[in-house]
Nucleic acid binder design. Structure first.
Length: 106
DNA sequence: CAGTTGACGGCCC
DNA sequence: GGGGCCGCCAACT
């Protein structure tokens, strides 16, 4: 049972449904700890399996994508989100409508 | 082993 | 409403 922090984070990110986005803090909360927000960022930074881990669906609380996206630039991440049906306004997502709704597990 | 870093979040000005 | 500072936790050097 490898319950590493990263493993949990990756698992949560994989659970993000298409057409929705989740914030780092939310992923961290679903992973088990809200304060892992930065750890989540680091976890996605290593991103061992970008094919199975839709890290582009993870955005900041402001609804903005990470500027340090190393898979083709932030523009690439935005494009992928738009393909999922996410609407961008002035470079930011309408979290109010597209944020992944999750029952308060914690 | 200790210090610094980092794909963030929340509070303050 | 926008910008800046501090705080948290794990990984890296």
């Amino acid at each position: 049972m490898e319950e590493n922090s990263f493993e949990r984070i990756y698992k949560v990110v994989k659970q993000i449904p298409r057409g929705t986005v989740a914030t780092y803090g939310q992923v961290a909360a679903l992973a088990g700890n809200r304060r892992w927000a930065r750890v989540v960022g680091y976890a996605l930074h290593v991103n061992p399996d970008p094919e199975n881990i839709p890290c582009y669906r993870v955005v900041t609380k402001d609804g903005r994508v990470s500027e340090a996206f190393a898979f083709g630039g932030e523009n690439e991440q935005v494009r992928l989100l738009m393909e999922d049906g996410i609407e961008f306004v002035d470079g930011h997502v309408d979290m109010k409508k597209y944020q992944w709704f999750t029952p308060q597990i914690y």
